[in-house]
Design a protein around this nucleic acid. Structure first.
Ligand SMILES: Nc1ncnc2c1ncn2[C@@H]1O[C@H](COP(=O)(O)OP(=O)(O)OP(=O)(O)O)[C@@H](O)[C@H]1O
Length: 763
DNA sequence: AAAGCAATTATTTTT
DNA sequence: TAATTGCTTT
């Protein structure tokens, strides 16, 4: 190795090094968790650059943008900043979007097309179903959306669909004969609105390459080497595009682990990696067997779990790290106690010097985060949550973004629908429906119709017409602003002229303040974006670019590492590829994990893989817990331990002393469940019940009934309510979180209000 | 057209 | 529980 180059062999074991240096043809690494697959990919890129392949000729596809950036950072350290900068690294969606935007002349869309998110798509589908006067119980927007998405991920167009007799017959027999028509209309409408959904990004890339040989050749030549991480979670469309690109030179390296395939619900196809050899017959297969991440106990426990899957590529994974602690299992009486137990363990870990940022709590569904948050907050433990309601999912932010999208792309019907009456302009449902029909008759966009309304036939009354025209004027003048200004200036004017900020400035209640803060935060993000772009030499950062970046953010991408060290809360899906010293997996119960939506064996096996992924995120310690009761959909439900707990070899589990009087009761609920965890004979399990809670600090709200008068109101207090105005409290009904107040309002009479919602203020 | 209120009903993971 | 839908009143 030339001495001015970092010798990368020092960072790799033998097997890894041979995978890195093999460049004569296609290669695939199928290896277990923590064996260094991502590491191999990273160093392989560095190796390629060191061997003289320019960074701008290397395409690296990762599962999140964050992973791409981390990879880039590491490569910069090895080969230097200036070279690594030009590497093509990102998610499938973000890279392909860039290509589509660049090849805009060939894809039949106009520049600055909109990306519809799931909500937009579902809303469009809902409107189509309504227009076609179909039963929305038979055709649910989610059901239709999922089916359309699945079709697109299999590269099936409406025309293809309609030529498949079998599918049409199946639809007919299941009473959904109009699905094909909805599918077709949906695609037409998206195109008319100059919009693409997530799946279209892949689909249109595929068609672009398929229909334009010269363009395909251009990218085949540009990408002299292609590398893909997490290949087990690619779908058919992605696999086909990658195959096309690599067809010319066969310089492709993919890595993955079939045991970690957890995204089949959005089209991921495990066969892509299992049968990679079919697409590239000369492909070389590498195996990595040593896990560098986790202790032996964690690796062995995970292996014993995944062994129970019938469909898998058998593989060895071992660890040479210390044996470590066994995996601890907690049995808890309620979900709240479970959260307290986890909180306690987090405190203990903190006390022995584990930083919060090295701890993660993983769960199956986002809804489970609530109890955990409460427990952590009560103990003043800093935490951050991924997923669920992200910043960009807030109503006020989505509204502002919709304005931006409409201003950028005047054809974007979904955005127009969303904000034509936000803030309230007296344009209601009837008017919108009429506008849609009329504009479709004229074959122009609704906005265009409004702008030309004086010269077009219509039956709006003068008042409504003026309201529409005023809205049209706002948008068209903002569109002019957009053409001549940068992202920040445009955004600022949109927020002002749309009237959104004003709407939330009318009164200073807590919600309005937080909405204003959010809007300002959005402005800040845009300003930062502009500064960043300018630093990279882009003089005129456009709002459109900001929007497309934002629409393809993954949950992990929204992490900003500044500030204090925090415990992470996320779903297992979101934790893909990450690692933490301490991992807590909660809610390992039947009807939750595995999800009650899974019936078939392949579905159950995917859930098992999900637990495998969860456990293998842990470096040092892993805690699994389940609860015997859980608060769900407003009532208490009884739960039994997940069958997966029985799949893990006892030898690697630490299940401390059992005592628990509740077992006998609860067991009667599921006497037919042969998998039941506490059922295996001398299995010892600690159940944390309220009685056992001496071990656990009892929070104020968890006390049986001595709940503090949480809201601090007593009869006789004078109070103020946002809508009813001032009044006097007549009595307080109940205690604690669910207490109500009967209030005699000066102008609105008597009302009974739940204190936790009513936001009463003492005056 | 909009706001307020009562009734209903859904239950997973995400680019 | 929370979000949505449908109904009633202004
Ligand atoms: N040869 C090695 N020497 C030291 N550490 C290593 C080596 N190989 C991998 N590691 C470390 O092991 C951990 C797991 O590596 P990596 O994330 O690349 O594995 P992976 O196979 O991609 O895992 P997963 O499939 O779970 O995402 C990382 O912390 C990495 O730094």
């Amino acid at each position: 190795m030339v001495d001015n180059k970092t010798d990368i062999s020092q960072f790799l074991n033998e097997a890894q090094l041979s995978a890195v240096t093999y460049c004569d043809g296609p290669s695939v690494i199928v290896a277990g968790a923590g064996s260094g697959k991502t590491r191999v990919l990273t160093y392989k890129i560095a190796y390629l650059i060191q061997s003289g392949i320019p960074a701008h000729s290397i395409l690296a596809l990762t599962f999140t943008n964050k992973a791409a950036n981390e990879m880039k950072e590491r490569i910069k350290q090895i080969v230097g900043d200036r070279i690594a900068k030009y590497l093509w690294a990102g998610t499938f969606h973000s890279i392909f979007l860039r290509i589509l935007q660049y090849e805009i002349d060939y894809i039949g869309f106009l520049p600055d097309f909109t990306i519809y998110d799931t909500q937009d798509s579902k809303s469009l589908i809902k409107n189509i179903i309504k227009e076609m006067k179909l039963d929305d119980k038979v055709y649910t927007s989610s059901g239709v959306y999922n089916r359309i998405s699945s079709m697109k991920n299999h590269l099936i167009t409406p025309a293809d669909y309609k030529s498949h007799r079998e599918w049409l017959q199946d639809d007919f027999h299941s009473g959904k004969q109009y699905f094909a028509d909805i599918f077709e209309t949906y695609c037409t409408r998206c195109h008319e609105a100059n919009a693409m959904d997530f799946d279209d990004i892949l689909l249109h890339t595929y068609t672009l390459f398929k229909n334009n040989k010269d363009i395909l050749e251009k990218y085949q030549n540009r990408f002299a080497f292609i590398l893909v991480d997490e290949y087990q979670d690619t779908n058919i469309a992605q696999h086909r595009i990658i195959s096309m690109l690599a067809q010319a030179h066969h310089r492709i390296a993919v890595v993955g682990d079939d045991a970690q395939s957890i995204y089949s619900f959005r089209g991921a196809n495990i066969d892509n990696i299992i049968h990679f050899q079919k697409s590239f017959e000369d492909c070389k297969i590498f195996k990595l067997e040593e896990n560098y991440r986790s202790t032996q106990n964690i690796v062995d426990a995970a292996n014993s779990l995944i062994e129970k899957n019938r469909f898998q590529i058998p593989k060895k994974v071992y660890s040479n790290l210390p044996k470590g602690e066994p995996i601890t299992v907690f049995s808890c009486f309620t979900d709240r106690i479970e959260a307290d137990v986890v909180t306690e363990e987090i405190k203990k870990a903190d006390a022995v010097g584990i930083p919060y940022s090295e701890m993660v709590v993983l769960y199956r569904t986002n809804a489970q985060s609530r109890v955990l948050e409460d427990a952590l907050r009560n103990s003043n433990i800093p935490y951050k949550i991924f997923g669920g309601l992200s910043f960009y999912a807030h109503k006020e932010i989505k509204d502002v973004l919709a304005y931006m999208r409409l201003v950028i792309n005047n054809l974007d019907v979904e955005s127009l629908r969303r904000i034509i009456n936000v803030p309230s302009r007296g344009i209601g449902e009837k008017t919108i429906d009429k506008l849609m029909t009329a504009s479709r008759e004229q074959q122009i966009s609704p906005l265009d119709f409004i702008l030309k309304i004086d010269n077009l036939p219509h039956d709006f009354n003068a008042g409504t017409k003026n309201k529409l025209k005023r809205f049209g004027d706002i948008i068209s003048s903002l569109s002019d602003t957009y053409k001549n200004n940068d992202a920040y200036q445009t955004a600022e004017k949109i927020i002002k002229d749309s009237g959104i900020l004003e709407e939330y400035s009318s009164n200073n209640n807590i919600e309005n303040i937080s909405k204003r803060e959010n809007i300002n935060e959005l402005l800040n993000a845009i300003r930062q974006y502009c500064e960043q772009k300018r630093a990279f030499g882009d003089d005129n950062p456009s709002l459109a670019d900001f929007l497309s970046e934002v629409s393809l953010l993954t949950d992990q991408d929204t992490d900003n590492e500044e500030g204090q060290s925090k415990v992470t809360l996320m779903t297992i899906h979101a934790a893909k590829g990450l690692e933490f010293r301490y991992v807590f997996v909660v809610g390992i119960e039947e009807n939750l994990f595995p999800s009650p939506m899974c019936y078939t064996e392949p579905e159950i096996e995917e859930e098992r893989r999900l637990l495998y992924v969860a456990i293998t995120r842990a470096k040092e310690r892993c805690f699994l817990s389940y609860s015997k009761t859980r608060f769900r959909w407003g009532s208490v439900v009884y739960c039994t331990p997940s069958r997966f707990l029985n799949d893990i070899d006892e030898r690697y589990l630490d299940v401390p002393t059992s005592f628990n009087q509740y077992d006998s009761n609860i067991d009667t609920f599921d006497s037919d469940n042969s998998y039941r965890f506490p059922s295996f004979s001398k299995q010892k399990t600690t159940t944390y019940t309220t009685e056992a809670k001496v071990l656990i600090p009892i929070s104020e709200t968890d006390m049986p009934d001595g709940k503090a008068p949480k809201f601090g109101f007593v009869a006789g207090d004078r109070v103020m309510h946002a809508t009813f105005g001032s009044g006097s409290i007549l009595e307080i009904i109940g205690r604690g979180n669910d207490s109500k107040a009967r209030v005699d309002f000066d102008t609105h009479g008597q009302k009974t209000l739940l204190l936790k919602y009513s936001k009463l203020q003492k005056i």
